[in-house]
Each structure stands twice: as structure tokens, then as C-alpha cells.
């Protein structure tokens, strides 16, 4: 029982991280119809900046710099690579392929820099744990959950209550109509990309903190597990991103935790669990659990 509770808590915490990253996918997808395949390497880049700076500046300053760096980078991507395509009216998968090209370059560079090292981002929680009754949870997991909740909550609030949120929602609803009503589309997309970049850097801190061993060149691939979260949620739904993230986190945590009983599925099955869940969901609901159904009758 204790084990189950621990796994559930860890799963929810991991799921919130996936949710954080997939909110990044969703916010970019809703405002620009682009799926950003470079999100994983952006996350790796953010983590790399934090890991290199934190021995000199301390963790908090480094984290701030990392978040700023990925946000600025994502804004540059939108300004320099995505906006020209938008203005030309290119198909959406062309932009997706641009982000794949970007991913090739970025990942090659980071892999070369990181090599076979294991980087540590120097977070202040270390190996400390929290005991609630018989249940033991790593402090980083609690911090991850709290951070993700606060960020997603703030984000949701801004989305519903501020002028910026209205502009964002209007853009997602109908870009052209929003532009005609005075929404500055380029600013909306810039802010969307900045948020996605910043969230990636935040997620990098918690994805690589204890109990995971640290950050290596493959961490970007871990981050890609936010894709199933976003797709299961439906790509264009914020609630979906949150629910999808938690589903994926729970699935992964439970499958890893009960690996002993699931040996026939192979060592490390937990880490592919999100992909399996995604395929199962897509079999039943091709546009995800919360996604807008693309209705077409012929």
C-alpha cells in the first residue's frame, strides 16, 4: 500500500513535469499551428546553461539565466524561422520540418558538448526526502509538483483573465478574425514561443534532479515523452495537456514500480509506457481526449 501511494505521488509529480512541457507544445500549437519538435533539445539547452552556470553563480541565478536563455532562443526561432513561413502562407508541416532541422543542429551541438558527461544542475534539494507517515517522497518531487502547479495555475489565470489571454484565445479560435480585431499576431506568437521555451528550462531542472542521476545527452529524449501527453490531451487543449501529462506520469511510474511483476514486458518498460498509452488512446479517439474533433463530411 505504501509503495502504491509513493508510486502515485511520484507519478503525479512526473506527470506535472510532462504537463509543463506539453503546455509548451499546446500554447505554440494553438497560436501558430506548429508542432515544435525542437522542444526536447531546447530543454536540453536550458539544462546545459544552468549546469554550466550554477557552479559560478549559484543555482537560482543560473536557473533564471537558463529560463531567460531558452525563452529568448524560442522567441528568436519564432521571429527568424517561423514568421517568414507564416507570412508566405506555407503549410504547417513545413514549419514542423523546420523545427526538426533545428533539432538536428541543436542536438548535435549539445551532444558534442556534453559528450558522455553526466551534468548536475546544482538544485538545492539534493537527495533530501519528505516523510508523511510511512510514505517517503523525494523533496525534488514535491518541489516539482508545487512549481508545476503554481506555473500552470498562473498560466491558466492569465489565459482567462488578462488581455493577453483574450488575444491568445482569439488567435487560437480564428487567427484572421483576431488580427482584424486588432490582435497583434506576431506579438501573440512571440509570447507563446517564449512561454514554451521558459517552461522547457524549468522542466529541465526537475527532470534531471534526484532521484534521476543527472543530465546527459539523452535527457532531451525523455522530454519528448511530453508529446504523448500533449497528443492524448488533444494538442489544442490546456486541460488536456494537464490531464494527459498526469496520465503519462502515472502510467510510467506504476509500470516502473511494478516492473518485478511485469518482467515479460522487458527491462525498463516503464519509460516506453507513455508511448504505448498514447497509441491505445489514439486507436479509440484519433483527436485525443480533449481535442477539437476535425469534422468533415463528404
Amino acid at each position: 500500500m505504501t509503495k502504491l501511494i509513493e508510486l502515485l505521488v511520484n507519478g503525479v509529480s512526473l506527470g506535472m513535469l510532462y504537463a509543463l512541457i506539453s503546455v509548451g507544445f499546446v500554447v505554440v500549437f494553438r497560436s501558430t499551428d506548429v508542432i515544435n519538435f525542437a522542444q526536447g533539445s531546447t530543454l536540453l539547452g536550458g539544462g546545459y546553461v544552468i549546469a554550466r552556470l550554477s557552479p559560478h553563480t549559484g543555482f537560482w541565478l543560473a536557473a533564471l539565466a537558463g529560463v531567460a536563455a531558452t525563452a529568448a532562443f524560442a522567441m528568436l526561432v519564432d521571429r527568424l524561422l517561423i514568421r517568414p513561413l507564416r507570412q508566405r502562407g506555407a503549410r504547417h508541416d513545413v514549419a514542423a520540418i523546420v523545427t526538426i532541422g533545428l533539432d538536428i543542429v541543436l542536438l548535435t551541438d549539445l551532444t558534442r558538448r556534453i559528450g558522455s558527461d553526466m551534468l548536475h544542475l546544482g538544485d538545492p534539494w539534493g537527495n533530501a526526502v519528505v516523510n508523511i507517515g510511512p510514505v517517503t517522497v523525494a523533496q525534488t518531487r514535491v518541489a516539482a509538483m508545487a512549481t508545476a502547479l503554481v506555473l500552470i495555475g498562473l498560466f491558466g489565470l492569465a489565459f482567462q483573465r488578462t488581455g493577453w489571454g483574450v488575444a491568445m484565445r482569439a488567435t487560437a479560435e480564428d487567427t484572421e478574425a483576431a488580427m482584424l480585431s486588432g490582435v497583434r499576431h506576431n506579438r501573440v506568437t512571440l509570447s507563446a514561443w517564449a512561454i514554451a521555451g521558459a517552461l522547457a528550462a524549468v522542466a529541465s531542472v526537475f527532470l534531471t534532479a534526484s532521484p534521476s542521476p543527472g543530465m546527459d545527452a539523452a535527457t532531451g529524449q525523455t522530454a519528448l515523452k511530453a508529446f504523448p501527453a500533449a497528443v492524448v490531451g488533444g494538442l489544442d487543449s490546456m486541460t488536456g495537456a494537464l490531464v494527459g501529462g498526469v496520465i503519462m506520469g502515472l502510467a510510467e511510474s506504476l509500470a516502473s514500480g511494478y516492473q518485478g511483476q511485469l518482467t515479460f514486458l522487458g527491462q525498463g518498460f516503464g519509460s516506453v509506457m507513455p508511448w504505448v498509452v498514447m497509441l491505445l488512446v489514439l486507436l479509440v479517439k484519433p483527436s485525443g481526449l480533449f481535442g477539437t474533433k476535425a469534422a468533415a463530411r463528404v
Binding site: 508542432i35 519538435f37 504547417h92 508541416d93 514542423a96 519528448l224 508529446f227 504523448p228 500533449a230 497528443v231 494538442l235 514486458l265 522487458g266 527491462q267 525498463g268 518498460f269 519509460s271 516506453v272 508511448w275 504505448v276 498514447m278 497509441l279 489514439l282 484519433p286 483527436s287 476535425a294
Partner: peptide
């Protein structure tokens, strides 16, 4: 049943699940 970008993400699953099978 999937279109464009959804399909792109769904096919990612094949790579990860496939590699897991190859290892296990």
C-alpha cells in the same frame, strides 16, 4: 485515421516501442 502532425507524433511511438522490443 490521423492527419499530418498527429501522425508524426504517433509514429514517434513506433520508434521508442520498437527500440524497447529490440533491447528486451
Amino acid at each position: 485515421r490521423l492527419r499530418g502532425l498527429y501522425l508524426g507524433v504517433a509514429t514517434l511511438a513506433l520508434v521508442y516501442i520498437g527500440q524497447h522490443v529490440l533491447y528486451s
